[in-house]
Nucleic acid binder design. Structure first.
Lengths: 326, 326
DNA sequence: GAAGACTACTAGAGCGCTCCAGTGAGAGCC
DNA sequence: GGCTCTCACTGGAGCGCTCTAGTAGTCTTC
């Protein structure tokens, strides 16, 4: 910076003014400084600039490496954060890097706030974290008062899905339950509500987050005789639905003719032309945006927070659901 | 830090010594300082510590958000970097955040070196980047002299795969080509080499990175009469293979009885029990480790670099390849 | 019992920025 | 012409650490 200043014949402070794009430099000087910087290949050091500044304007994001849907939320966060002059510090969770490790890193970087995507941390730990800096949990519902939650209205989404299946004429509708995965509880609730509303008997099988869990459930579905077999399945998520569907097809069952299959999330693979999975869409973009809004509100106070942290789900009817055959 | 020093009755420098875990403090003082820090909830600020240090020991990692295989490589990098006291700065590429954006961020953070995973950047840009700091390209082969490349021996992998298929008795073996995706060229080369070796006629169809591309190829395969239809397909990667396979099964073709299908990468989904995709395994862990080793060598000079940046591929024979039916 | 070698600790400059208080020069006004 | 205002710019103190040079104090060693 010193060198740039010398070359442009100005003070270091002026160079700073130019690079921060704040008023206080004439247009001609500005160009001069920029030219000098370009010649020297100078680029400001963000770490130093953050040190000198009172606010770091950094948002930590803890997410699961390799989780497609998390990646989509991160994309939304990148966009929303960029719009408001915040930087995003990613901290990935992987088999060898625990969520605690990831949180520790975010803390050490002096982020001003943190968003946890689909966290599996204990409420106690989350509460402690929230005591240190503004925290928002995306995807996972939490009853910790100091933590903002941004999530999809999953219960409503599943209700809508069951309504759709019922509307097609299905009665034996099974739910592949996500256990204690983030989002599993409200989906279960929505399923039960809708089944009750239509006077149908709920039935659940163990599902999960991955294709494998869906494939396992296929065995149990096929164990029934055709007359008792469920005619429709609402899987915990898309990957689970995909795994189920492929296992069923491989065993010779036709989808949707013999069994309707639906997922949740609307990941990219669900929309592929050859798949056409009926599913409940979560809007990752909106989730990311809302998370950033909430944190901004906590940090800046000024702007009104989004009225709610709940994003509506959208039923995406594609090709894997149809009226039952007989 | 000042507060901690005051509370422990020592100088700031001593607190620094304790937290950096370097010699120069007695065991009792060390405990004293740590206790004082704990009471005050003090945690050192990494950004400031890096500023004061000559070396930042930060490795920038540019990767595709939502690319499963990239995520696995990142995990390997986290592990290898941690072992040698380096920190990892993730910079994700997404639809709205270009690779150039990601690289710019890494530069502004003053990372000491950068690893590009499956980069799509123009060689010119990569060369320029490499002129500024040590750069290694993982997955993508590059003929830029200043850039280290760490990749799988993809040509050998595909040769081995074709050998396997030929050994099963296949003759009409088709390759779903990845176009200009990272790794497509060597896979193509390996395919052609092996086909030539066995005197078989090579045939390629357009494949790609996603399930969708595989599903599209299925149409073309099914356009052949059974007598002329390929009996085995080597897809560009696992996702492409999975898409192809599901499309084929859905059309009533049996895998592997009527068509053998194989992929590349060995992503988690390939290994699921209900899938059992025969594939060529890339070792993401090793790739990540090698990338870090190379950068360490460039940065520290001392340690001998790994002899080669090429990781062997491993043929994983599972259930989707079998002798041709006739 | 003085020189030398350790060990435990401290003072203070420095890392590359930001930002506040201030300087000087010119414009506008009566 | 003197006054205030604004604008462009500068000096220098910080931000929270690291790290070198140095100061005591203790332990050897002959």
């Amino acid at each position: 910076m010193e060198d740039v200043a010398a070359r442009a014949g100005v003070s270091r402070a002026l160079v700073s003014i130019v690079f921060r794009q704040v008023p206080g430099a004439s247009e001609s000087t500005r160009r001069h400084v920029l030219a000098a910087a370009a010649e020297l290949g100078y680029q400001p050091d963000r770490r130093a600039s953050r040190l000198g500044r009172s606010r770091t304007r950094m948002l930590g994001v803890v997410f699961g490496l390799g989780h497609d849907f998390h990646a989509e939320v991160v994309d939304g966060i990148y966009a929303a954060a960029g719009d408001h002059g915040y930087e995003v510090v990613l901290s990935g969770v992987s088999p060898r890097r625990t969520e605690s490790d990831a949180v520790r890193a975010v803390l050490a970087e002096r982020c001003e706030a943190v968003v946890l995507i689909g966290t599996q941390l204990a409420s106690r730990d989350i509460a402690e974290l929230a005591g240190r800096l503004p925290t928002v949990s995306v995807l996972r519902q939490l009853r910790v008062p100091s933590v903002d939650v941004v999530r999809t209205d999953e219960a409503a989404g599943l209700e809508e899905l069951v309504d759709h299946l019922h509307g097609l004429g299905h009665e034996r509708i099974v739910h592949l339950d996500g256990g204690n995965a983030p989002g599993a509880a409200p989906r279960r609730r929505g399923y039960l509500t809708a089944m009750n509303r239509w006077g149908l008997e709920p039935a659940s099988l163990v599902g999960g987050l991955t294709e494998e869990s869906g494939a396992k459930a296929a065995d149990q579905i096929l164990a029934h005789t055709a007359a008792h077999r469920p005619t429709a399945v609402a899987a915990f998520n898309d990957r689970c639905a995909l795994g189920l569907m492929h296992a069923l097809i491989r065993r010779g069952l036709h989808v949707p003719e013999e069994v309707s299959v639906a997922g949740f999330d609307d990941i990219a693979a669900a929309g592929y032309a050859h798949v056409g999975l009926t599913t409940v869409r979560q809007d990752p973009d909106r989730l990311g945006q809302l998370a950033v809004d909430r944190l901004r509100h906590r940090l800046e106070g000024g702007t009104a927070p989004s009225p709610t942290g709940v994003v509506p789900a959208t039923l995406m009817i594609r090709k894997t659901t149809a009226p039952p055959s007989a």
